[in-house]
């Protein structure tokens, strides 16, 4: 964002003017840090973006700390688990590739262990969740379909089910794709197939763009396995607020996907 280099070089006092504030607020900047240099001009040294700022979604080289952090998060995320982790699973399915299995284990086992240790579960039991999860990963790798899910999503569903089995000691009912009563998705049109491959990356961007409050609710739900009623209790907010955050988040996600359909 070149404007931060003050192409228009507003003076500090100008920054405080009504006009400047409105200008910045319009593009979602909620706070401005500036310093006055020898040339007498005030330079913007940092800005804080509001959570719904259109700039935070931009791919430009920005000045915002928040924007930069989001990009970094996205980058680490990308390195970790996109095509390489998907292809590990495909190699396991096709050639029973133990190196790929080891690579997948190295990337995800410590995360799954931390996931299993939420809610005060001890390391021994969490270790059991990790091992049972990867036993199933090996056995079910054929069922992984990169068109339908990313490796991290697929691993999450297996780890979640193991957490329910081992920690809650109960069964998780799931739809059965081979059941005659099962109603399959309508056959996708050829154009839809292309679109689906874009969905994953689009969704990922979209989660980063959700408000911190919406992310917090979803994170507590998934990582701590809290029912939404307990999320409301934990955050000390009304149940209706939790419900509307969930609905708004889903609406946002759907709108993003709707764009490319």
């Amino acid at each position: 964002m070149k404007f931060a280099q003050t192409q228009f070089g507003p003076r500090y006092s100008d920054l405080k003017s009504w006009y400047a504030r409105t200008l910045f607020m319009d593009i979602g900047i909620s706070h401005i840090e500036s310093s006055t240099e020898q040339d007498g001009y005030s330079y913007i040294t940092g800005v804080t973006l509001a959570s719904d700022s259109p700039i935070s979604k931009s791919e430009d080289e920005g000045v915002s700390k928040l924007g930069r952090k989001k990009r970094e998060d996205r980058r680490t995320h990308k390195n970790m688990n996109t095509e390489s982790m998907d292809s590990c699973l495909i190699s396991i399915a096709e050639t029973r590739d133990r190196n790929a299995f080891k690579k997948l284990f190295a990337a995800f086992a410590p995360k799954i262990k931390s996931f299993a240790m939420r809610n005060g579960v001890g390391p021994e039991l969490a270790e059991e969740v990790v091992q049972e999860t990867f036993i199933r990963v090996w056995r079910k790798a054929e069922q992984f379909d990169p068109k339908k899910a990313s490796a991290s999503t697929w691993l999450y569903t297996i780890a979640r089910n193991q957490r329910i089995d081992l920690l809650r000691k109960r069964h998780r009912p799931e739809p059965d794709y081979e059941d005659p009563a099962f109603i399959p998705e309508p056959e996708p049109q050829p154009t839809e197939i292309i679109v689906r491959s874009q969905e994953a990356s689009r969704l990922k961007e979209c989660i980063g763009a959700l408000s911190p409050e919406q992310q917090e609710v979803l994170k507590l739900s998934f990582m701590e396995e809290l029912p939404h009623v307990e999320v409301a209790e934990k955050l000390g907010i009304p149940l209706g607020t939790v419900k509307s955050r969930i609905r708004l988040a889903m609406k946002h996600i759907r709108a993003e996907i709707g764009d490319i359909r």
Binding site: K111, F115, P123, E127, A149, T153, Y156
Partner: peptide
């Protein structure tokens, strides 16, 4: 549900890590 699981998967991918036992693999 699969969109929700995708969100969960991306949280798992960004989750902190706890070292697994050396003998685990």
């Amino acid at each position: 549900v699969s969109e929700l699981e995708f969100v969960a998967g991306s949280f798992l991918g960004a989750s902190e890590e706890v070292k697994v036992d050396d003998s685990s693999f």
